[in-house]
Design a protein around this nucleic acid. Structure first.
Lengths: 116, 116, 116, 116
DNA sequence: GTGGTCTAGACCACT
DNA sequence: GTGGTCTAGACCACC
């Protein structure tokens, strides 16, 4: 089992925003929700929301225009490989968990089929 | 999106122990590892390991025999439906995430197949 | 006149720590005050103190050992040119301000002499 | 070290205006730039410029004639000792900082000379 | 004891 | 309206 010490709120929200960018719900350069709207959207503290944008800016995922708002990075490259990368992580986690619970390949496939 | 406020280390370990009980690796009433062994097993701090048993005891999942150790709850009922329940949660989370990333049913099945 | 939008508390304290490192009061790799001690020392909020170390770590000036404390960067290079650099900034700011107040070279020199 | 909690933009501009009054660039009772001109002069937001005059009026440094503009306080006393006072502050700050950086009297004098 | 995160709410500067 | 900083105090994990 892998303990995830990085599963803090601000990390989870950043991941979610990345997911939205990867899936095309957000497009490169687009305006993100305001700090206060983000806080409302995820039911978190405005301060935590501000930190999310600060970290995204620090890591080049977003940029900020004072008084205007925070925007997703302009460069489409940045979000390019993100989708398949996130999917791969999703799948490997899922398969590992199911095997830990004692399900074999056929059962897993069957259960996924019936869930779709 | 659902923020996982329960993603602390000690919660993750409790979940993992439940998973082991659900999958039959642990059986009702069996002795659990000592606090030290648990700390060693998950590479966590002994303080945190101690807290894990404290919480499990408080929520009725385990009980302690002074000087002997901590044991999983005797009642098989408690861990009865756990396996399929956890699997269902696993699957629905996985499917939701993949759909959020924009994959359709065929793609998901294909990707799971190739991952197995 | 130059407006300094960066003169926030956390910036001022970082500068002060750099000054201490530059002047040899702090040496490369040494332990810094704990977050709480720093808060006490500068009469600031522990949260702000934590941010100071977070920023210093992000910019490579310090590193952190969980449960042990925060330490100045090991590399003496980092604090090498800092002293003369900070002195130059100090002097040019001082001279500019004095000239703005209408003092000429001789007066400035005389005033500095009598202040020493 | 003394943290400068007064380092907001509007405080910095007020200080600069005082410096101009102290150095004789502004004289007691003279008309100050309009809010718009002030914003333009310091490259700040008009809201911030308006606040500057509001604060100066509140602290007796200036007064406003409706429809005419804002004027420096009439009383020459107010700006009397300001020049030498500000110079003294400037110098003592500079000397302290240089000494903190580990420079001795001769070095400081030498550096000031070469900067002039 | 150590640092890190989160919440709550206030003030500042900019559009 | 926008983001940014600061204060206050709580909880978590690690040594």
């Amino acid at each position: 089992m892998i303990l995830d010490a990085n599963s803090h709120i601000y990390r989870q929200v950043i991941d979610d925003i990345c997911k939205k960018a990867a899936s095309g719900q957000f497009t490169a350069g687009q305006k993100l929700p305001s700090v206060r709207a983000l806080a409302d959207l995820y039911q978190i503290n405005p301060n935590t929301a501000a930190r999310i944008y600060r970290e995204m800016e620090a890591s080049g995922l977003a940029f900020t225009r004072k008084g205007l708002g925070t925007y997703l990075c302009d460069d489409p490259e940045v979000f390019g490989g993100l989708r398949s990368e996130m999917a791969a992580g999703c799948i490997s986690l899922f398969v590992r968990e199911m095997k830990d619970l004692g399900y074999d390949k056929e059962e897993i496939l069957e259960l996924v089929k019936s869930a779709l």
